[in-house]
Amino acid sequence: MLVSFKIQKFNPEVDAKPYYRDYEIELPERATVLESIIAIKEEIDGTLSFRCSCRSAICGSCAMRINRCAKLACKARVADEVNRHGSILIEPLQKLKVIKDLVVDMDPFWRMIEKVKPYLMPDPNEAAPERERLVDPSTTEDVIRNSLCILCACCHTDCNVAELEPGFVGPAALAKGQRYVADTRDGATDERLKSLSEPHGLWECARCFACTQVCPKGVDPRESIRRIGHLAYERGIRSDEGIKHAQAFLDSVKASGRLNEATLPLKTKGLGVVGMTPMALQMFLKGKVPFPIQRPVPDMEEIRKIFELTEKQR
């Protein structure tokens, strides 16, 4: 099949800014995007630059934006892309500086991974056994699922929060964090939970599931984030605004079946809410501030049952 590609190019030695170049190439039916760009490099444009290695979705090198979604080029099929989008647009991963063409500077991503202390920290008071540490096989599910992460940065660079808040540690680092939180051999669980709950940590996640959607390995970073959040809550690590916000949601719905948007900022930010006064005033003037006292929903019994059921299922 003859396929058209539009690929973002940028060579800092020559170009003032990135531009798009069109290519057309004959490909076999089951060609991957990686096979295609290798063919383009060999047959048309030797300057086209990208990273690649394993061809089997295990090394994480060839992550790039394919039709505006972060993917591994070796896993994306040309025919699927053409069927869905008509043509193929390839751009570098978002948010990271472009070094050349599709090659981005991954350093900021690696720094985020390093932030979660991604190594085993056994309890210092326990001497290492002579043999292996024993691990109940029923506890390894989370560890193995998160170990599938190949650090390709697809989730991190397509994360909607990281786009607005570059300090957000991001879904890949949080999944790595959960890998160690869930590891029964680790002795620093509380320390990890505290650190992961700090500002720019897990509570900054907007629960949009973009990470889970783009992950090429089925790691489900959003689920990992939920699990560390849950565990932090259980262990009483509740100082971050994010968890107070979640708590305020819960309390409000439990009390009245409704979300009290007027009291939410106060419960989340405490005295810090003073800083929001100008915005609150503007909202008030435009009639956007709801009345702080709310009538409960008519059938509170239903609400109570929902809570009961949820408790039971935990």
Binding site: Y119, L120, P122, A128, E132, R133, V135, D136, P137, T140, V143, I144, S147, Y180, D183, R185, D186
Partner: peptide, 9 residues
């Protein structure tokens, strides 16, 4: 294993 490598059990 002591370094933290994950093994099936």
């Amino acid at each position: 294993e002591h370094m933290g490598t994950v093994f099936s059990r």
